[in-house]
Design a protein around this nucleic acid. Structure first.
Lengths: 339, 339
DNA sequence: AACGTCATCGCAAACGTTTGCGAAATTCCC
DNA sequence: GGGAATTTCGCAAACGTTTGCGATGACGTT
């Protein structure tokens, strides 16, 4: 019952041989006779021996754990990414340690300390909204722990990144709105110090520009969650400054706007068209279903892992930071008009 | 740059004292003089020393990692649970290692091996739909790794569990449907070998019974996802065997049914009332918003951690498995009629 | 018979930390 | 000032594993 776990020594003792021999036998070292190997393997099987990865990691001072730091777990996009991370990590014999910062800078810093303490092989991170300083990640790199950022990244960090083509995605969304007849398109965006905020904003501007639509600052807002969107949309409509299209930085915000529009007795898309960003599960559940941008979270997770594993293999020599950009797709549903 | 990490020995060498002294100084052992402590702590700070938890875990053969095995990450309920787990684990100095089984029995078994290898302190698990055999979890217990199950549990396992009061939740849902005038209530349920499937089913039956409504087997189905629900609902309505209420085993299924009903030109809740289970994010996003059962995933995660930590503290002596039941709440929205 | 060649295995150190025990050095007490 | 008590620290072992090196025998070769 309540037992210690079986070790190599237990096997060695029971067989009357040394621990080294058992170790070598288990990994099919040529120095060991077939009979010994057979005996060792059989006993290991019988005792349900599992190598102690702690000891292993300690020995070669590198663990098979990938650390992941994200702002929030309860979020379709992030859980997609983690799912991609977990699947590929698992396929390569790595385990995944997660830590959510809950959008708190202090906790994010603390989590990097934990990663350091745990001697993880590498860290994948999407920074919190409050993070404007990246020293704690540099510390990881300085201690030999490679860091790969995904989605929420910043320009100033000279490290590996994998991001979605936010500019192009936003452009596609807004361009589509225009092509379906919208002329007064509002943008609900997130913090501009996050690249994703800035890039989506710029994509929005670029689409207007390309289509010769003047920029109207009274239609551009910092607004990135459900309740905010509801409130803002209601205010906007009642104020008389009503847009005929809304491009929101994510699906939740888009749906908040959508609900508010319907609540006021207006129709989507006839009166106001709406486009979100992410293509999460909810985008098919709203009424009407949401036109949005597919962000390929699962693939993003996988790519991040692949970049990390690559770095871990050829770990020496100076390394030139790489930025991978994932293309988005416009998913047309019924919250926008026909083209 | 590309450095090894700082160890206790580095500090000891630089200060010309022994590693033991540094170790004791760092944890404020009374045997060490104040000046030494001061010197050690300052240097540790300066060098950014972080204890190597691998070595620590190896030493006392127990790590500060909680393993979590779940069927699917991309799922509002499960990510809520993990979020609760992570927050409480973090507060108690533990890290969280996740592993998704993707509803595969083989992978679930493999993940338990990994947990064993990693010498995690304990494991929290929600079993896959395919799991009908629980030996792999018994192996964990036999090796001194406590296991706590949550949500998806089975009767035959004699271990700690934390579940939602599925019976009562289902009862509340169906009872409410009846009170609002429904007479022909369909049930879309999940596998009966999962306790949650059976209990919700029984809660459904009990509500019918209490209200003297005969059970109609032609209204009971195994159907637990979006597409299935859409298809089944459409078939059901067209076949003329139309229910006036639907109680679904989760929100996604409920919304699938809701969409199908609307698609056929019928109204929710006037023609058919619908109740889901979970109260996930999507339940507020549908049109009309979904009446559902709040399942308290975040709290469930926290309770699971608390049970585990309790066991880890007084780890000796035989332990009587405990089952914690979390009460549900009926959340009334607009997919049901007024009472 | 003397030597080299293999095949097979064990010793011991190392990874970073903790901790019981003992060893100095200092202080105290009478 | 002699002994005891106290303070402050170091030694070494241990956790489980890997691995360079050396050891032991059994052979085969001259």
């Amino acid at each position: 019952m309540k037992g210690r776990q079986v070790t190599i020594k237990d096997i060695a003792a029971e067989l009357g041989i040394s621990a080294s021999t058992v170790s070598r036998a288990l990994k099919d070292h040529p120095d060991i006779s077939v009979e010994t190997k057979k005996a060792v393997n059989e006993l290991a099987e019988k005792l349900n021996y599992k190598p102690n990865v702690l000891a292993l990691s300690l020995r070669q001072s590198r663990s098979k754990i990938i650390g992941v730091i994200i702002p929030e777990l309860i979020h379709h996009f992030f859980s997609s990414v983690i799912s991609g991370i977990d699947d590929l990590a698992y396929a390569n014999g790595y385990s995944v340690m997660i830590a959510q910062s809950n959008e708190s800078f202090e906790r994010e810093v603390n989590e990097t300390q934990v990663m350091l303490s745990s001697r993880v092989a590498g860290v994948l991170v999407s920074v919190s909204k409050k993070t404007k300083n990246f020293e704690h990640f540099q510390v990881l790199e300085d201690n030999g722990i490679p860091v790969v950022f995904f989605d929420r990244v910043s320009k100033e960090m000279k490290m590996d990144k994998v991001v979605v083509d936010d500019f192009d995605g936003a452009f596609k969304a807004v361009d589509y709105l225009i092509k379906t007849g919208c002329k007064r398109i509002a943008h609900y965006g997130t913090s501009m110090h996050l690249l994703i905020g800035k890039n989506r904003h710029n994509g929005y501007l670029h689409a207007l520009f390309k289509n010769n639509i003047p920029i109207d600052d009274s239609l551009i807002f910092k607004c990135d969650d459900y309740d905010e969107a509801w409130y803002l949309t209601e205010k906007l409509i009642k104020s008389g400054n009503m847009p005929d299209g809304i491009f929101a930085v994510n699906d939740i915000t888009a749906i908040g706007a959508l609900q508010a529009v319907k609540h006021l007795g207006l129709r989507v898309p006839e009166d106001i068209s709406i486009v979100g960003f992410t293509n999460g599960r909810i985008s098919t559940m709203s009424d009407p279903p949401l036109t949005t941008i597919e962000q390929h979270g699962y693939e993003m997770g996988q790519i991040a892992v692949r970049i990390l594993l690559n770095r871990l293999e050829k770990d020496e020599e100076e390394h030139e930071p790489e930025t991978r950009v994932i293309k988005t797709d416009l998913i047309v549903r019924e919250s926008t008009k026909q083209i």
